[in-house]
Design a protein around this nucleic acid. Structure first.
Lengths: 219, 219, 219, 219
DNA sequence: CATGAATGAGAGTTCATTCAT
DNA sequence: AATGAATGAACTCTCATTCAT
């Protein structure tokens, strides 16, 4: 996934370079162990320039989250409107996420960005970042609502287990996929304490998520 | 869950007081935003005393993890050996976790401790913390292996879906429960961006996990 | 002696200002009683800037030592190659040291820097300071070897007492001059316990060192 | 040299044990890098007990200095009064020092104690240590005066070089012996940057000091 | 646009010292 | 006489952030 797919003037290019560097460093070291110096070095720019394009360190991860969430939601919107069957929609919803997250190695970082970034959203005090805050909250709500609504539809149609509230189901699906991607990330990046004999891999994850969803289908 | 259930002399009491304060502050603010000053204040002791009982800040979260993991594994061992049916064992495994995590309000912090602490385990360099490192890795492996093995048993017996590798299933179950508890935690502590109309609650979570597991049963 | 006699751009100027402040504070209070705050205040800069130019506190005294030793050795090299008579060389060797140490009031601090700094050299662990470590060891060896070699020459030529190993002689000469300069330093800076009626002064010191050396001449 | 040769009750024994531990640790690590914990451990007592017998950390090194200086002066007094020839007296003066300092391995630490301790004497503020302060200053003055006076005598008698003030000569002799003992200390304790091919040893040092003194004799 | 020197608040940590037992 | 838990002042060092150039 590209950080931006829009037309880029030179300034936007620099912004993009910094964001990609931030994605990598945040992903590798985690938000707090990542320093702006490292990001600047990775991006090949000076520390000062980061603050020209971004309010502060928080703004960097917030901006990354926003890019990811907007990309996700817009893709969802495009894809999901073309499909009418609610169960197929559920499959599509997670397939879109898979496709984006498993795209390339760096992309696995996106999961971490979200995991680390979300709890930080409420720290946004600066007036200037208020707008981004609103957008993130909105996008996140959109993402959660989307899947919850589809599940609700499927339940209403009688084709999906309706003994569990749709939001709970969406949390289960979300949690399952999150940990699978995180396991894959750890396996790829760090010699890890979670390792095991049978390693997790992409095709297993996709297949597993499909199986999981299918189990909620009611014949 | 109590931080220690052993007989306590006065020195152990203070250790416990500090650990409980650390659990709360780490849980509320996250490891990096928590300061030793805050923990000392919460515990009602001086900053220096923390370093009398603990090597450093990392030692605090590491010690908390160890307590949690050891409690979890020892309870699992007690409970699981009494049950022979593998499917019931799987249910028991997650019930034990539920019971411990949902015990009291502070207990919800445990999930966060683990989430934040595990990636830090590999940072342990100090010779003095090496031993704790080994124990954590061991306990974690034990925890993961336990559920994976039970699932494998159930699959071998032909009573559990064997189209998915047992480790992948354990990751799905683990991820699902993790996110549910985290959602509950956020709901209780912070005015949150993940909130929604239908709130998550304890009984829903337990019921949901049971349903989830049952869906993998093969008749 | 100036801390650097090279052409200075603005950045080097600040480095020099900090080093001069460090020289003064270290000299006055000793390494351990000197704080970075005091040095920063003396230099008129912030505490942080010291760490911009120097790795850490140790790097400050190490850098000072290096400047002093390099200055000493380079001056020795210039001066000593022009003189062929070994006895005159010995005189010159100590005259160079005198000239540098007695140059101005602050210069007396150099003796202290060396006295305190040398035992700290072996503490250098940081990879970044490794290079400085090598250079210091090299310069120090050069300094000691230089005088030992000249004495050896003089002994071989039969003009200098050869009943004592050259290194022992160089230690005696070195020790004698060290204590004389240290006495002068104490006299000038601190109300002292070593003071006496007859005070030490510069001309006495130079004359004394010359006499001392001459006593080892064999006619 | 024993820290005290007096009759010892049990309390004095503990004091002695602590002082000997302090001597070793101060000698090995230097005053600032030595911690009271290490000294307590070496002495086999608790940290608290050190403060029962000694005012504070400074008191420890001060007490060691006092023991050393008193021992030195009393031995000097005994030995020097028996000798009438001033030149022989000068030899005796340094022989006494040699005998005490080279006595055993730990004894080499005494030199360091003095080197580190003397600049600290003037820090003595506490009323309780005032008396020790006066005694140290007195003993130190006695030590310096003793040799200066003997040299003066020798000069007056016309048997010793009188072109240099006696105090300067005493500084030269003192400095020379100090550096020789320090070189020996470094050689024995630390892998050092001052090392050289020909190692310093005790008999060389004694012989060298004798030669040095003899060179000032006027026939 | 871009730099990097400069700032300073705040963190973790050490350790001499005190004091109840 | 002896302990060691408890304190807190003071230190070094990090690093996001600012700003003159």
């Amino acid at each position: 996934m590209h950080i931006t797919g829009m037309k880029l003037d030179k300034a936007d290019m620099k912004r993009k370079v910094i964001l990609r560097a931030a994605l990598k460093i945040f992903g590798e070291k985690g938000y707090h162990y990542a320093t702006l110096s490292q990001i600047a070095k990775e991006a090949g720019v000076s520390r000062g320039l980061i603050h020209f394009y971004f309010e502060n360190k928080l703004d960097l991860i917030i901006s990354l989250m926003l890019i990811f969430l907007e990309k996700l939601n817009s893709t969802h919107q495009q894809v999901l409107t073309r499909e009418k069957d609610p169960v197929k929609k559920i499959h599509l919803y997670f397939k879109v996420i898979s496709d984006i997250i498993l795209n390339d190695d760096d992309s696995l970082c996106w999961g971490n960005i979200l995991k680390e970034g979300l709890p930080k959203v409420q720290m946004l005090k600066s007036e200037k970042l208020r707008e981004k805050y609103e957008r993130i909250v909105g996008e996140n709500k959109k993402l959660v609502t989307a899947i919850t609504d589809i599940i609700k539809q499927a339940q209403t149609k009688g084709v999906f287990d309706n003994s569990i509230p749709p939001q709970i189901i969406s949390f289960m699906f979300g949690g399952a996929s999150q940990l699978l991607y995180y396991g894959l990330f750890l396996q790829r990046t760090r010699s890890n304490i979670v390792t095991s004999d049978e390693s997790i891999n992409e095709s297993y994850i996709k297949k597993a998520m499909e199986s999981l969803i299918n189990k909620f289908i009611v014949q």
